[in-house]
Design a protein around this nucleic acid. Structure first.
Lengths: 185, 185
DNA sequence: ACATTGCGTTCGCCTTGACGAACGCAGGCA
DNA sequence: TGCCTGCGTTCGTCAAGGCGAACGCAATGT
C-alpha cells in the first residue's frame, strides 16, 4: 500500500491548498459548503477528524474530486532515466519491468504513438486543467517537458509533466519515436 | 464535477465489495481494523456517516487505497503496425501523433518500461479479470500476445491483449525495450 | 478618530458517531 | 437433542464532531 502518514495531515494541507487555489476565504468556503467555519478552521489546522459528509460538502464546494483531498499531491515534473526506476517484476534477469507511473483514481489515460522529425519545436498550448502527459522515448533524441524547463530525453527515458502548462516536444534527431500517454481527469 | 449521488451509499457498497473480495467476515475485518463491528455493520448497511479515521483504518485493513472506498466502481488482441492507425493531431508533417487506445471510463492504467533479452519466453500467468495490457515496442523485436497466438512486433508497433488469459513476452533480439500500459478496472 | 466590514480563531452546547454488550440465528459436533 | 462457535444485527452509553456566538485583529471609509 502506498498510503502513508496521517490522513488528517494530508487533508488539512489539501483543504488549504485547494482553497487558496480557488481564491476563497475560509468563511466564504464554509458558507458555500454549508459547514460551520469553526469546523473548517479546525480541519485546516489539522485537529479534528471530519466525517465523510463534511469532506464531501467541501469537495463539492471546491469543485475538486473527493479523492484529491485525501491523496497527497504528486510532483510536477518527473524523469526516470533508462535503467533507473523501481523494477517491479523481475523474477528473471532477462526480463525487467519498471513501474513508471501508477494510475491515480479516476484518471483516464489515452495512449499515443508519436513520430517526430527535427527542424522545429512543437509548442503545445496548455490543455484543460488536470492533464498530465507521460512520454517514453523509443528511438532518437528529443527535448521534452515544460517550455520553461525542458528535458533532453534518450531512448528508454521516461518523463511526465503537467499538460495544463505550456510544454514542448522537439525532436533532435531524425526518426524520433515516442510513446505518449495523455492522462486526464 | 463527476461525483454524483450520496457518498454514503457508495462507501457502503465499496466496503461490502472489498470485504468479500478479500474473503473476510464482518467481525474479522472489524477486529483487524480496530473498529467495533457494530460500526462496520451500520456502515455497510448505508446508515451512518463515518469519520475519516474510521474509513482509513478499514482501508488499511482491506489493503486497498483510501480512494477506492469513496470512488464508485464503474464497469482480444489488436495490433497497430508502425505507420498505420489514425493520426490524430498532425498539424505539421514532421510531428504525427497516433491514437493507439482510448481509455475506457473508470479504467486505471499503470505505465511500465520493459527491457527483455532473448533466450526464453516469459509466460505470464493470467492476472485478475478485466486486465488489458497494451505494449508499444521501442526497440528490438519481440513475440507478444496471447500464448495461443502471439504476434511478432517491430519497433513502433502496438499490440494489446487481455491480461486475464495466458500471455507471453519473448524478446527475439538483444536490447529489446517496450513501453507497456497495464489497464485494470 | 471612530465605526464598519471581513477575516480566522476560540468557546460552550448539543447532536451524532463509535464502542461494547447482549441478542437472534445458523452450522458443526458429541 | 443439547452445546458450542462464529456470524451479523440491535441497544444503551459516552466521547467527539459539528454548530453558532462571541472574540481579536487588520484593512477600509466616513
Amino acid at each position: 500500500m502506498q498510503q502513508r502518514g496521517a490522513p488528517l495531515e494530508v487533508i488539512a494541507r489539501s483543504l488549504r491548498r485547494e482553497r487558496d487555489r480557488v481564491g476563497l476565504s475560509l468563511s466564504e468556503l464554509a458558507k458555500r459548503a454549508g459547514v460551520a467555519k469553526s469546523t473548517l478552521s479546525q480541519l485546516e489546522s489539522g485537529s479534528g477528524n471530519p466525517s465523510v459528509e463534511t469532506l464531501w460538502a467541501l469537495s463539492v464546494a471546491l469543485d475538486v474530486p473527493f479523492s484529491r483531498l485525501v491523496e497527497p499531491p504528486q510532483p510536477r515534473v518527473q524523469v526516470i532515466r533508462a535503467g533507473e526506476g523501481p523494477a517491479v517484476f523481475s523474477e528473471r534477469a532477462d526480463y525487467v519491468a519498471t513501474l513508471l507511473a501508477s494510475c491515480p483514481p479516476h484518471a483516464r489515460r489515452d495512449i499515443y504513438l508519436i513520430t517526430a522529425e527535427p527542424g522545429g519545436k512543437r509548442e503545445s498550448h496548455p490543455h484543460s486543467p488536470g492533464v498530465v502527459e507521460h512520454v517514453v522515448l523509443c528511438s532518437g533524441r528529443a527535448l521534452i517537458g515544460l517550455t520553461d524547463d525542458p528535458v533532453t530525453v534518450e531512448p528508454g527515458d521516461y518523463v511526465c509533466y503537467p499538460g495544463d502548462l505550456p510544454h514542448v516536444f522537439e525532436a533532435l534527431v531524425a526518426g524520433t519515436v515516442a510513446c505518449m500517454v495523455s492522462e486526464h481527469v
